[in-house]
């Protein structure tokens, strides 16, 4: 009798809680949609990046690269990264065509052999240029690749933020989940906590020095990724960014890779 009562009350609680859970998922998704929506229409851009890698002992090394990006309307964005330093890999280029509902297509061009290699994008959890950023952190944000959940509102550095949980739907992601801070005024990413496959906090990304371009699009000029488990960190500095470069989709074709300098 008592156990029956308990079962009934548990059922009632679940039924009461379900709409709340659904609400949080819907709100999380809504925030992510607004975040994506506010970043639509930038067209194409070209940026210069400096990466500073630090190990736990504080030793530094630098990476320099340029990234050309092209916004697609009905598909994931395309991006081409050309490496300038360290000099032994200068002229190497990484091309990525991201897809919301399929595995991304990726190629690597090696100038010494004049050879373009197609690479398996499933290996996305590997480090990008030996930094604390993984390949999957560098690709374009697509709503279809995550399940969202609103967690709470929270103040961060004086900005009122939404905190949402963002779970990768791809089982080959290196993360079990991520917690994302988005400021409520401009919908800019302020902080991301990455949890590894075992559920422990792995990395924290913080984004700084936002500047607005084309009167609409905010870009952080400094991003810091700290690995809590190794003590290593990487600063990614956006040294310059330019929009409306006149590039066309054909400039992001595989055939164009060998012309890249």
């Amino acid at each position: 009798m008592f156990s029956l009562l308990r079962t009934v009350s548990v059922f009632c609680l679940i039924w009461l809680a379900l709409p709340l859970l659904a609400d949080d998922a819907a709100k999380g998704r809504q925030i992510a949609e607004e975040f994506k929506q506010r970043d639509r229409g930038w067209g194409d851009s070209e940026s210069e990046l400096l990466m500073i890698l630090r190990n736990a002992a504080g030793q530094q090394s630098e990476r320099r690269m340029r990234t050309l990006s092209y916004e697609m309307q009905d598909d994931g964005d395309k991006a081409l990264t050309i490496f300038d330093e360290p000099r032994d890999i200068r002229g190497s280029a990484f091309l990525s065509h991201s897809h919301p509902n399929a595995e991304d297509d990726q190629w690597l061009y090696l100038p010494s052999l004049k050879r373009t290699r197609r690479i398996a994008s499933r290996n996305k959890s590997g480090p990008f240029m030996a930094s604390e950023f993984a390949y999957e952190d560098m690709t374009s944000f697509e709503l279809e690749k995550f399940a969202f959940n609103y967690l709470r509102d929270e103040n961060l550095n004086g900005e009122l933020c939404f905190v949402i949980e963002q779970k990768p739907t791809d089982s080959f992601s290196g993360y079990s989940t991520t917690h994302v801070w988005i400021d409520q005024q401009h919908y800019r990413l302020q902080k991301v906590d990455y949890y590894d496959r075992k559920g422990s906090l792995l990395k924290t990304l913080t984004l700084h020095d936002y500047q607005q371009y084309l009167d609409k699009f905010w870009r952080p000029h400094r991003m810091t990724m700290l690995n809590h488990q190794t003590g290593k960190s990487t600063d990614l500095l956006l040294q310059s960014i330019r929009f409306g470069t006149g590039r066309v989709e054909a400039d992001f074709d595989v055939a164009a890779l060998e012309r890249v300098r």
Binding site: E48, R66, D84, Q212, Y213, D215, S240, R242, T245, R261
Partner: peptide, 19 residues
């Protein structure tokens, strides 16, 4: 851009053309 990768001059000009 590449030639002047060491000097951000050119690239910075691009920023302001865009903004």
């Amino acid at each position: 851009t590449k030639l002047a990768a060491k000097a951000v001059t050119t690239a910075t000009s691009k920023i302001s053309q865009a903004t």
